[in-house]
């Protein structure tokens, strides 16, 4: 099954908001039946088309969920996952349920489920949360799910110092093979 698109807000013109370099904007003309995208650099050409059903507008910020939206979302299960391996066929993961006592499971998740901004985080060892929930939207119940990767910070200099100290403590307890006292 393919991922669903869950942006359902109507697109409206927002005066004064300009697209950033490289951003794309989309406007669907009522009744036109089709849509197209354009970048800022293509604006002139698009606007100059006589009789075009499309109008280039600045991008529209997606509103944050209202309190009611959040309130009407009911999580069914939250899985804490660890990425075991990644290849072009998907991501092998280990899943631990957070909302009930369930056995640990393993699974494969297609990469298309991962947000573009999280793709760089999908590497072995990464931690993520897979939430499946029901939400009430305009009177109808919808199933929804999302994967959010935990974006951990880089190792800090103080972490590095702690690692060195721990490694030294470890080394003091590790005897090399050559001086092993055989039992």
């Amino acid at each position: 099954m393919n991922p669903t698109t869950n942006i359902s807000q109507p697109l409206e013109s927002t005066a004064g908001v300009q697209p950033l370099a490289g951003e794309m904007s989309l406007r669907i003309q009522p009744g036109a039946g089709t849509a197209s995208t354009s970048s800022p650099s293509a604006e002139g050409a698009a606007n100059s088309r006589a009789g075009s059903a499309f109008e280039v507008v600045p991008p529209v910020p997606v509103p944050l969920p209202t309190h009611k939206d959040v309130f009407d979302s009911k999580p069914i299960q939250i899985w804490e996952g660890v990425v075991l391996s990644v290849d072009r066929n998907g991501m092998d993961v280990r899943l631990n349920a957070k909302l009930a006592r369930l056995p640990e499971h393993t699974a494969t998740i297609a990469l298309e489920w991962i947000h573009d901004q999280d793709r760089d985080l999908a590497r072995p060892g990464a931690i993520f949360y897979l939430t499946v929930f029901r939400k009430l939207s305009r009177g109808s119940v919808q199933n929804a799910q999302e994967i959010r990767f935990r974006r951990l910070p880089n190792w800090s200099n103080s972490d590095v110092l702690k690692v060195r100290a721990a490694a030294s403590a470890l080394a003091a307890r590790m005897k090399d093979t050559d001086d092993a006292a055989r039992p």
């Binding site: 280990r94 369930l102 056995p103 640990e104 499971h105 699974a107 494969t108 297609a110 499946v132 799910q145």
Partner: peptide
């Protein structure tokens, strides 16, 4: 066979394949 309640499993199968208990 996965050891997950059916309703949760169905939802998980929307996104995941090869779901199996680790043990």
């Amino acid at each position: 066979k996965p050891k997950i309640p059916t309703d949760q499993l169905k939802r998980l199968q929307d996104m995941c394949t090869a779901i199996a208990p680790a043990n």
